[in-house]
Every structure is written in C-alpha cells, then in structure tokens.
Computed example of a mutant assay.
Amino acid sequence: MRIWLKDSERRPDPEPVETDDRKAMLVGIALWVVSLAVLLLFIEPLNAAGNLWWLWTAVAGLALGLIGLIYTHVRRGKRSR
C-alpha cells in the first residue's frame, strides 16, 4: 500500500453531502433545557452539597448551543445566496 499518490492517479473528491445541522443542535439544546429544569428542581440540595456548578454547566451548554444555532443559521443564509 502506497501512502503518497501522484495527482494523476488520484480519484476526484466526492461532492459534499448536504446536512441539516440545525436539527442536531435543536436536540442538544432541548436536552440542556431539560437538564436545567431538573437541576432547578434540586437547587437546594445542590447548593448544600457545593455542586451549584452543575447548574452553570447546563446554562453554559444552553448558551453555546444557541450560539451554534445562530452561527449555522447565518452560515446557511450566506451559502444560499
């Protein structure tokens, strides 16, 4: 097996596959919302145990998911022009 091929021996690159990344992000965001709601139900025991950072982890995951969703929306708009 050779590691390096000449350009004349290479097959053409395949066409990129169109995907809908927004669906995956929406599922992830929904899971972060559910986890945030569950953690808010148990906020007193979390605070007593010193594990309030779990709550902030869910908030950070939700925020990053929303940023990613906005990014993919903007990128899709630029690509369709």
Rank of each mutant, 00 (worst) to 15 (best):
M1T: 04
R2A: 11
R2L: 10
R2D: 13
R2H: 05
I3C: 12
I3W: 14
I3V: 09
W4G: 00
W4C: 05
W4H: 06
W4S: 04
L5F: 09
K6M: 06
D7R: 15
D7I: 08
S8G: 01
R10S: 08
R10V: 06
R11Q: 14
P12R: 05
P14D: 00
P16F: 07
P16R: 10
D20S: 02
D21W: 08
R22K: 03
A24P: 08
A24W: 07
M25D: 00
L26N: 03
L26I: 00
L26Y: 01
V27K: 08
V27E: 13
V27Y: 05
G28N: 07
I29G: 07
I29P: 01
A30Q: 13
A30I: 09
A30N: 12
L31G: 04
W32N: 10
W32T: 10
W32K: 11
W32Y: 11
V33T: 12
V33A: 13
V33G: 03
V33K: 13
V33I: 14
V34L: 13
V34E: 03
V34H: 00
S35I: 11
S35F: 05
A37R: 02
A37D: 05
A37Y: 03
L40A: 03
F42E: 00
F42I: 06
P45T: 00
P45Q: 00
P45S: 01
P45R: 01
L46S: 02
N47R: 06
N47T: 03
N47A: 13
A48N: 01
A49L: 06
G50D: 03
N51S: 01
N51V: 00
N51H: 08
L52R: 14
L52Q: 14
L52S: 11
W53G: 00
W54T: 03
T57K: 15
T57Y: 11
T57L: 09
T57V: 03
T57N: 14
A58T: 11
V59A: 04
V59M: 10
A60K: 06
G61Y: 06
G61Q: 06
G61H: 08
L62R: 02
L62K: 01
L62M: 09
L62C: 05
L64M: 15
L64H: 15
G65C: 13
G65Q: 10
L66V: 15
I67R: 15
G68K: 11
G68P: 04
L69D: 03
L69T: 11
I70W: 12
Y71D: 08
T72K: 04
T72N: 02
T72I: 14
H73F: 04
V74Q: 06
R75D: 15
R75E: 15
R75K: 08
R76A: 15
R76I: 14
R76D: 13
G77W: 10
R81T: 11
